[in-house]
Design a protein around this nucleic acid. Structure first.
Lengths: 345, 345
DNA sequence: TACTTTTATGAAAACGTTTTCATAAATTCG
DNA sequence: CGAATTTATGAAAACGTTTTCATAAAAGTA
């Protein structure tokens, strides 16, 4: 009965196969499947039943081509395995799935060339929207222009373009994060406070530094602190910076490290060199990577609430997809941060 | 000149637009773009130049529909943010991108229902192949049947179906991992060795337990050890297990915990309860999560070489995609593990 | 009853590619 | 030089949907 309509099992069956098996037109089958427009109740049931029997699944590509909608969102980020990003991706993917969207992920590995390549690929794949956290060095954002010119929603997060590049942005309150760190160290009584920062080409490190300096200036009345280092976030560089810091006569008694991984490196360096934390050196990290909670001493750090971040991302994205495009200026959404006090400071 | 051919900027231009602008047929343009078949050198140059000028990008959906190839791979895993998986995904995505494939990711959150849903979605999206690491509880693998019946390569890794479900599989050498852990604890002189394992419904925990027991049996001559616990990998459950273990009179002096996160929990419990590691309790974890290297004492663990894992995944997948499907039985690929000795044991 | 509206379905076009089938021009070969 | 081959291009069909435009039947309304 049914078998006579079933094609070679390796073939996909289509809406035409369903139509043939039911003596209906493909149009009606499509309508039944998507319950758009009028379809007799009985017909719809017959279609659904047959679809089940033949194991029919819609070819999303064909539908996408026709509808000009892929139900796919592209996500470009530096590296999935970084704690903050892994958490964000986790919730973003879950929420998008619930809303019927696929997520395609591309890692720039902090290489602007790769980032551009991914933008092109995703555009070519006709993603319905795109989410981007930039490279540490991205200065030319024009590879993303195609999206705006083609009215494809683009949403930057965390590492974002400057205000001058008009785009929707969600970012953590890095200035406040830096400020909280500085304030905490000052209030703990530190006199010589240093900082090991990431590259200032990236907005997040720039803002963390600005907030931090503002705190020192406001609360200690100091101008430009001396013990500043910026680097590419490698453990080796952190050690270099520490060596320099502790060589001089004005050793730091407080240190703000803008990445938890590097804060852990500081911890190890301190242990190796007999520097007591927090007695001799108070330490504040950034991100609330779970590792900071289990090392000893545990590390005081700034939580960025990545899950909340992810939720806001998806909510904003959906709003962008659903509402008609507007040229209105949309101020950056700032998500909160807070200081998690632990043993290191 | 050119502008007259440019459409409204929000429109995508197509191969037809190129053809019109150049007074060529779409066929020739396509041939020039993909350099298939004969195209005069000069023509090809003209096409490429115009493509650049008009900012043409191929619509991958249309191409995919026509070619029955999406250049997209689906990946289903429990949760991206787990260390092992994050590392695997990182290298898999990078390698796939280099080979011209997009990666779409779906998280089952260890829910078999969600896993099934994702399989359906990815099938519907016509992925060229699919990579799966199962739920801890997946027992019914039939949701994946569609792929095999439609000749779509499917490759399981890490958490895989049993031998009886014929499918290509890449897994870590969990038996050996368990064996190495057991051997190490025995050789360290432990007499009462316990184990906290994940759910035995999953092949990985079953194999780790089997290897571990084999080691104790072979090297200690003991039959079924007493101090066995299995649980769902939650910190709370680990604490419960520990409470029970240390309540009895035969307290363990060695412990194999088949997940590093839980090994860290053991560390904390030990600290809270004044149990000295490694003096009173030797501890071995599993996965070589970076956290094990930075806690103190650092944790001896089993490395699974996730990067190597990812490389093998992609290599095998490419082979499956490129070579004609075969019914030949393909034995599971086993990737190596090794014991990383640290302070805890 | 005769008209309008609602319900139900089908034919055909469209989405943007690629490829098969033609055909013509250019080149090679005997 | 004429025939065979290679090079170069175009027309049209195809991939699997969805949707517009018809049209017909059923239901509602005056």
């Amino acid at each position: 009965m049914i078998q006579q309509f079933m094609k070679d099992s390796q073939q996909h069956n289509t809406i035409l196969d369903l139509a043939a098996a039911l003596n209906l037109s493909p149009a009606t089958v499509s309508r039944a499947l998507n319950n758009t427009s009028y379809v007799k109740k009985e017909t719809k049931e017959r279609v659904l039943e047959m679809a089940l029997k033949l194991g029919y699944r819609k070819n999303k590509m064909a539908a996408g081509l026709r509808n000009n909608k892929t139900n796919t969102i592209g996500l470009i980020l530096p590296k999935i395995s970084m704690y903050f990003h892994a958490e964000v991706v986790t919730v973003v993917q879950n929420l998008l799935h619930a809303k019927g969207y696929n997520l395609i992920i591309g890692q720039s590995n902090d290489d602007p060339g790769m980032e551009k390549e991914l933008a092109e690929t995703f555009f070519s794949s006709r993603v319905d929207a795109i989410i981007v956290s930039c490279t540490l060095e991205t200065e030319d954002f024009s590879p993303f222009d195609i999206f705006s010119t083609h009215q494809i929603p683009i949403l930057f997060y965390d590492r974002v373009p400057p205000e001058t590049y008009r785009a929707r942005v969600i970012k953590g309150d890095d200035f406040n994060g830096g400020f909280l760190a500085g304030k905490h160290l000052v209030e703990a009584g530190c006199k010589h406070i240093g900082m090991i920062n990431g590259p200032m080409t990236s907005n997040i490190y720039e803002a963390r530094a600005a907030g931090f300096i503002a705190a020192l200036r406001m609360l200690q009345g100091k101008e430009e602190p001396k013990l500043f280092f910026q680097q590419q976030l490698q453990a080796e560089e952190t050690r270099e910076a520490l060596k320099k810091m502790f060589k001089g006569k004005s050793k730091p008694d407080g240190l703000f490290v803008t990445s938890d991984r590097n804060a852990v490196t500081v911890l190890q360096y301190a242990k190796e060199n007999g520097i007591k934390i927090p007695q001799e050196l108070r330490l504040v990290g950034y991100s609330n990577d779970p590792v900071t909670a289990v090392v000893s001493p545990s590390i005081t750090t700034i939580d960025q609430y990545p899950a909340l971040f992810g939720e806001k991302l998806v909510a904003t994205l959906m709003e962008m997809i659903e509402s008609p495009p507007t040229d209105e200026y949309q101020p950056a959404v700032i998500t909160p941060v807070s200081l998690i006090e632990r043993e290191s400071a």
